[in-house]
């Protein structure tokens, strides 16, 4: 595996550790951390800071009833949370977002395919599959876009992104990612606002494709 060179910035990891990221972004960060020990360590460091806040923010006395209830529930049966392991190129958090099933691709035209993983008021997360050498059409973002490479590689104005690399793009970046030659490039992409493709799909149709 190639070395990961594009990491999650500190503020993004802090927001992830604090649980304040919208769900689509949290999926991408959790997937990147699954592939990247540097960011796993950075996230743990933020949790240590969170722990320091927990230790110092001030105490509130708890009721005796609560104490009795918790100690009385130690033997109560509990349903273990499902654990999702990596499947092929897909990190556990992506497998979880796909509910353990293989991706169901929808063609977007020009050989580009997508699979929506989550979509709602918080934004959306999707898988994108781009044929080798093909450019993802010009698009601009209203908010933030996170893209994590799961297979292949792409390049744009800001650099080359291989497996495990994470790209952040905001309003200020108008970029044209081009999939490298070789394998199809499969990415996990999340946005907190609809993506606007200027050339691929007329914007009227965008709600239909949920992009």
């Amino acid at each position: 595996m190639t070395e990961i060179t594009h990491h999650a910035p500190d503020a993004l990891l802090a927001a992830y550790a604090a649980g304040s990221l919208p769900q689509p972004f949290a999926i991408v960060v959790a997937a990147h951390i699954s592939l990247c020990n540097d960011c796993r360590a950075a996230c743990a460091a933020h949790e240590a800071a969170g722990g320091a806040v927990l230790e110092t923010v001030g105490e509130e006395a708890v009721s005796d009833a609560l104490r009795g209830r918790v100690l009385g529930l130690l033997d109560a049966p509990s349903v273990p949370e499902p654990q999702f392991e990596r499947v092929g190129i897909f990190p556990g958090p992506v497998v979880e977002a796909m509910r353990g099933r293989p991706p169901r691709w929808t063609p977007l035209g020009m050989g580009i395919r997508q699979c929506i993983l989550a979509s709602g008021r918080q934004g959306s997360a999707r898988l994108l599959s781009i044929p080798p050498g093909r450019a993802v059409p010009d698009h601009s973002h209203n908010g933030l876009e996170l893209t994590l490479v799961l297979q292949g590689a792409f390049s744009d104005e800001t650099g080359c992104f291989g497996v495990g690399d994470l790209e952040l793009a905001d309003q200020s970046l108008e970029h044209t990612p081009v999939a490298d030659d070789g394998a199809e490039c499969i990415c996990l992409a999340a946005t907190d606002a609809p993506l606007r493709f200027s050339s691929l799909i007329p914007s009227l149709l965008q709600p239909i494709f949920r992009i």
């Binding site: 910035p9 500190d10 503020a11 993004l12 802090a14 927001a15 550790a17 604090a18 649980g19 304040s20 990221l21 972004f25 933020h46 800071a49 969170g50 806040v53 927990l54 923010v57 933030l144």
Partner: peptide
């Protein structure tokens, strides 16, 4: 506020050097 989850990612990034 950052570690209580009350600040958005944008708020954390715009506080240069701050949240940390």
């Amino acid at each position: 506020r950052a570690y209580l989850g009350e600040l958005s990612h944008q708020e954390i990034s715009s506080q240069t050097g701050l949240p940390l």
